[in-house]
């Protein structure tokens, strides 16, 4: 399990449920590593401000991480973390490697209007 204060996706069923129950979802799939931790920290920081978005993480080395790793949008990725944004269960944006606050919030603002 990742050591963050975010919701952890710990099974394929939990992943499906999150997408089903929330219109706007941001999932960061990574490890507790140098490129991933800053993204989790951005998510923790803005969680209160973006109440219309569900924020969650998923451990890259878990058995169920294929739900993110096998997405067509992630096939060219070779930098952790894989961060994927879903609207009504469909991928609207995916990024690879470290992202800062501005990059994350501009994707959220562009794709998930309040």
């Amino acid at each position: 399990m990742l050591q963050t204060n975010l919701t952890h996706i710990e099974s394929e069923e939990a992943f499906d449920a999150i997408l089903e129950e929330n219109e706007n979802v941001m999932i960061c799939c990574g490890r507790m590593g140098p490129m991933c931790v800053p993204v989790y920290e951005v998510m923790e920081e803005i969680e209160g401000e973006y109440e219309h978005v569900k924020f969650a993480d998923l451990a890259f080395d878990s058995a169920h991480s294929h739900v993110i790793r096998s997405l067509p949008e992630c096939q060219t990725f070779n930098g952790l973390p894989f961060t994927v944004y879903f609207k009504n269960g469909k991928v609207v944006k995916a990024t690879s490697s470290i992202q800062d606050m501005d990059q994350v919030t501009s994707i959220l603002d562009e794709n998930f209007s309040k």
Partner: peptide, 17 residues
């Protein structure tokens, strides 16, 4: 190309390469 061929962390991304 960050994360798609350019990497800044060997311990994070080494296995992709």
């Amino acid at each position: 190309f960050k994360g798609q061929g350019i990497s800044y962390c060997a311990t994070c991304d080494g296995d992709f390469f």
